[in-house]
């Protein structure tokens, strides 16, 4: 049997983490292929329902990348996201899923290597957790 290949959705801020991901590309930094990136203008627009939707659709992990505190292009959207995450994590826990499946990281536009590192590690974490049953188990 082949090893479990998790499906990861990354929702990242246009101004920082998306740019860092581009930089990782320009620098040819390899990372696991499992990640699918969705561009947001700011993590502040991250709606809880996007995360839940991702899990319901079969994602095994959701990664959020925003600007470092103080660097948000829109002043403090990143902090709003940071405040929202524990609430979403609590919902996951209620349905019996590890909140480790959801991660928020600050990755600045110049941090290509950090992007590679965080994504690689996150994929390993999710691989270790095994497939998410959320798609079938979460009845909303």
């Amino acid at each position: 049997m082949s090893a479990f290949e998790p499906k990861i959705i990354a929702m990242v801020c246009n101004w920082c983490t998306y740019t860092a991901a581009d930089l990782a590309g320009t620098s040819r930094l390899m990372y696991p292929h499992n990640v699918r990136i969705i561009r947001l203008m700011c993590t502040g627009m991250l709606d809880a329902k996007y995360v839940l939707k991702a899990f319901l659709e079969g994602a095994d992990g959701v990664f959020i990348g925003g600007c470092h505190p103080g660097d948000c292009h829109y002043i403090n959207g990143n902090l709003k996201a940071a405040r929202r995450i524990p609430g979403i994590a609590a919902i996951l826990e209620q349905f019996g899923f590890s909140s480790e499946r959801l991660e928020l990281k600050w990755i600045g536009a110049s941090e290509g290597p950090e992007f590679q590192e965080h994504i690689t590690r996150f994929v390993e974490t999710i691989r270790a957790l095994g497939p998410s049953q959320a798609a079938t188990a979460m009845i909303l």
């Binding site: 700011c42 502040g44 627009m45 929202r84």
Partner: peptide, 16 residues
């Protein structure tokens, strides 16, 4: 266009 309103709107009335 930061979307702070959209993400916070409980009735999904706000959107970017």
């Amino acid at each position: 266009g930061c979307g702070s309103c959209a993400a916070a709107c409980p009735s999904s009335a706000a959107g970017i």
